[in-house]
Design a binder for these strands. Structure first.
Lengths: 341, 341
DNA sequence: TTGAAAGCGCTAACAA
DNA sequence: TTGTTAGCGCTTTCAA
């Protein structure tokens, strides 16, 4: 029923190959012929079938993207970076939410591979051997974003999570705090563990004893963090500062303290992580470790295009710089005291 | 190089058709044969090629989704609803950002159609004749979400924008306000205009004169809204309440007033729109018109599956209910005074 | 229950 | 510069 390349060829009095050439911008076509074909295409309303093209050429110009949760501001921003660059290179993306469930991740990878994506962009809490095995069966490049596999075999784009957490903790230490609460994500996850390690290292380097009771684990969300904060507030020796590894959790920390009658940043300082829009839309505004979310997405997609086009890649492990965005939830003096080592 | 259905057939000593049957769960296969084929599939690591399948069957089990901006919390939540339901029905989604640019929207539709998506889910500020013409050339169903075409020909999922704005304005009117500022989105856009109309209607019904100077248009974002708020604050007769048609803008309104020395909700009341997570993470928490964002996405995708599967559709224009979430940016008495007509 | 065979619409040698 | 002709890997009648 729909118009095919064959119809166009017949109507224009040329061969399928010629039509294919003009459709694909092949220069080896006489201008007059091109013009004639173009006219017929227009007249018939011919629309190339990308599936047939994909089968014949073994390229689909679509890449698979596996992301934990697109409704999460952090990942949404990342996804935007991915899509923009994909678009720039004429790729479309098949977007899949994994909810960080390994089973679902594996199924998704399988599905995307069946759909013959030209590349895979994977975001997930952990890259296990099962993931690696599956990736190995893929004949297309895979790039990780915001994670890294244990053996560092796969190309990936990240920030230095450990260092970022170290810097954040250091800022608080520089302000004289010795009871710094750590409100982090699951330690089984790559980022969760790295940040915890950065926090501990900073304490150790500063000669401040690590205390178990100053650590609480949540799922990066406001509601959960609010509950975890209750623990800190019942402590005989209450923390005087909080390092939360997401902005939502940091806001929860602020509210928990405020509700208990404390002022932020006068009585307690709070620093978050990510720098999502929320951070600048709350009062006090949130001091936070800024991840270049959009760029992580953009760079990882760019990296993937390089692999897909067989371009030379100098470093497959890229670490983008993070910064500490000083705002209202920490005291002003901090501006001169950002830790860098 | 990669294993094909033919390899499996040869290895299992059956025909391609039989392999195809077991892969697709066709019951007309002797259990013993099925078992043998399954074994070979496993052993060879056969992975069905969905592109070839798509060409042969004319079904790709992927749908195209055109969304203004996935980095926007409202659309991100919607997208999640879409993806979840798509997934439930075994579809994948190709996600495209349009930034509300008509040109880009049209190109995207064209591209998705070329990719032979089984259906299209479109979100955009306006559905023009050009859109309609393009949709008409599509041999697959199209569903609109958060918009509606002028002729109401295309199926769509929405809330009653006009009524929602009416209700919000009414709440403020019920609190005795006569100078209610309207901080809205572009009037050229479907939602922008509908909400403005609802606002005006509510004023009119209450016998409160409409005043041009109480209207400001922004792009739904915090930063822009903050600038627009300056206008209201310089007015000789300052508005005593603000109806902002996005939560980010409502938060900006609150901050603008707070920075000018006013208290919310004591001195001025503010109501937002959407009910994104931000609304409950700011202090005061935000009273807002709650759109069932996830459900709009989910229902529109479900509707699309019905069309794709040729199921009977009773109503192609669905309006999901909205509510007003009473929180801290309006005065408590309001709880008994929600407008409903 | 199984197989043979004709496409699906296009690309990509290869030849002319 | 153009055309011919194999496929690409699968589904789907139609027969058997």
């Amino acid at each position: 029923m729909s118009v095919t390349i064959y119809d166009v060829a017949r109507e224009a009095g040329v061969s399928m190959a010629t039509v294919s050439r003009v459709v694909n911008g092949n220069p080896n076509v006489k201008p007059a012929t091109r013009k004639k074909v173009l006219e017929v295409i227009e007249r018939l309303g011919y629309r190339p079938n990308a599936v047939a093209r994909g089968l014949a050429s073994k390229k689909t110009t679509t890449v698979g993207v596996i992301i934990p949760d697109i409704a999460n501001a952090f990942y949404a921003e990342l996804a935007r970076g991915i899509e923009d660059i994909a678009n720039m290179y004429k790729y479309n993306i098949i977007l899949c939410n994994s909810d960080k469930q390994p089973k679902k991740e594996l199924t998704l990878i399988e599905t995307l591979l069946e759909k013959q994506v030209d590349g895979l962009l994977f975001m997930g809490p952990r890259v296990t051997d099962e993931h690696l095995d599956l990736f190995r069966t893929a004949s297309v490049p895979v790039v990780l974003a915001t994670t890294i596999d244990p053996g560092c075999q796969l190309p990936s784009v990240n920030i230095d999570q450990r260092q970022a957490a170290y810097d954040a903790t250091r800022l608080l230490l520089n302000h004289g705090h010795t009871r710094i609460a750590f409100l982090g994500g699951p330690l089984e996850e790559f980022a969760g563990l790295s940040r915890f390690q950065g926090y501990r290292q900073a304490l150790e380097d500063a000669g401040v004893p690590f205390r178990e009771e100053l650590v609480q684990i949540a799922d990066y969300r406001y509601e959960t963090a609010l509950k975890r904060m209750a623990h800190f507030l019942t402590l005989p020796e209450r923390p005087t500062a909080v390092f939360a590894t997401s902005d939502e959790m940091a806001v929860a920390a602020i509210h928990a303290y405020q509700d208990a009658g404390f002022r932020v940043p006068e009585d307690v300082e709070v620093i978050g992580f990510d720098n999502i829009r929320l951070a600048s839309m709350v009062r006090p505004t949130l001091t936070t470790v800024a991840q270049p979310m959009y760029d992580i997405g953009a760079v990882s997609m760019r990296l993937l295009t390089k692999y897909m086009h067989n371009e030379k890649v100098t470093d497959s492990l890229v670490f983008l710089p993070h910064t500490i965005e000083i705002r209202g939830s920490t005291r002003a003096e901090s501006k001169t005291a950002v830790a860098t080592r």
